[in-house]
């Protein structure tokens, strides 16, 4: 297949390009103009398409012959207008430029679109979990990823394009370690919130391989797939594993989930009392966002396992190489 990969210069996009090439696809890798790869670093089979999805340009001319899209591009940080431009406007421009008759659209969404309050005890989150019904109580990332996913789904439904919506967990690997499970650092101490809650980690190569594999799925219509590794360490376990691998972490101080929620409740009360409910709270004090990161939940990946089989990278191996790249 001739595959367009958007966000090809990003953490996930780079791995997707490698996996797509390894799977025998011809790759059009869309990179932002200010961070184009050196020509000698671009492997055979990859054509670099310079362009920024936030505005039109010559990148649109390169899309005429593609068979499939893997849409990784999104703004992962910044304020709401920044993320609206980098995620929503970018997707609107991409959809407007796509040729008709695409064989498949693989959209990289996020676990953040789910309603983390929805699962009842014992909480399990899978593809049937409802989406966040009140995005405004969450952060800009959730708001824009929800909107982006809706736009892609509406577009593919209207055009009859087979769509796979892939919702990865926390993607880790060389260059991204999610603070090794700590919530805050105070001097030599690392506060581990909800130490026994699971992290929905997925190694970047596992994630990229499953995203690329979706291009070959026979399923027509729309498929939602959660991407998360089989091994889901606790925050404490991940921190401990990182220490064992040589990561420069502090001394772990576990803070039980109930204590975290109590802090959140106090912050909510203070916001209501002193700021008319408008206080801008950090994640660790904001009740809805606390749930997203620290609620004890099991993340089911049965569908991904059935479709894609065994994963390549084990947690111990992934952690070793992640730590190795951060050491001086």
């Amino acid at each position: 297949m001739k595959v367009l990969v958007t966000g090809a210069g990003g953490f996930l996009g780079r791995a997707v390009v490698v996996e797509a090439l390894a799977a025998g696809h011809e790759v059009l890798a869309m990179h932002r103009p200010a961070s184009l790869p050196e020509a000698e670093m671009v492997p055979a089979g990859v054509t670099v398409v310079p362009g920024d999805l936030r505005q039109g340009g010559s990148w649109r001319d390169a899309l005429g012959s593609i068979d499939a899209v893997i849409h990784c591009a999104a703004a992962a940080s910044g304020d709401l207008p920044t993320q609206l431009a980098g995620t929503v406007l970018a997707t609107e421009n991409l959809l407007a430029a796509l040729p008709s008759g695409l064989a498949r659209f693989a959209h990289v969404s996020s676990f953040s679109v789910y309603d983390f309050a929805a699962p009842n005890w014992p909480a399990v989150l899978d593809e049937n979990t409802p989406l966040e019904p009140r995005p405004l109580r969450r952060d800009a990332y959730t708001q824009t990823k929800l909107r982006q996913e809706r736009m892609v789904r509406e577009f593919c439904a209207a055009k009859g394009i087979p769509l796979a919506v892939l919702r990865p967990g926390a993607i880790y690997g060389p260059g991204k370690h999610w603070d090794y499970g700590k919530a805050l650092a105070i001097g030599p101490f690392d506060l581990i919130f909800a130490p026994l809650s699971r992290m929905r980690l997925i190694h970047v190569r596992n994630c990229a391989a499953e995203i690329v594999a979706v291009l070959e799925l026979p399923e027509p219509g729309e498929t939602m797939i959660n991407l998360v590794d089989d091994e889901q360490p606790t925050h404490w376990g991940y921190h401990h594993g990182a220490r064992g691998a040589g990561a420069p972490v502090g001394l772990a101080v576990p803070v039980p989930y109930l204590a975290v929620r109590a802090l959140g409740a106090l912050a909510w009360l203070a916001s209501k009392t002193f700021f008319r409910g408008r206080a801008r709270l950090p994640e660790w004090l904001d009740l809805p966002r606390q749930q997203v990161r620290w609620r004890p939940i099991r993340y089911r990946n049965a569908l991904a396992r059935r479709l894609f089989g065994k994963q390549q990278v084990r947690l111990s191996e992934g952690l070793q190489e992640t730590v190795a790249t951060t050491l001086p």
């Binding site: 431009a85 929503v88 609107e92 405004l136 824009t144 909107r147 736009m151």
Partner: peptide, 12 residues
């Protein structure tokens, strides 16, 4: 000129 940005503002 972006329907998506206008809709986002509307929803917000």
């Amino acid at each position: 000129k972006s329907a998506a940005l206008a809709q986002a503002a509307c929803d917000h």
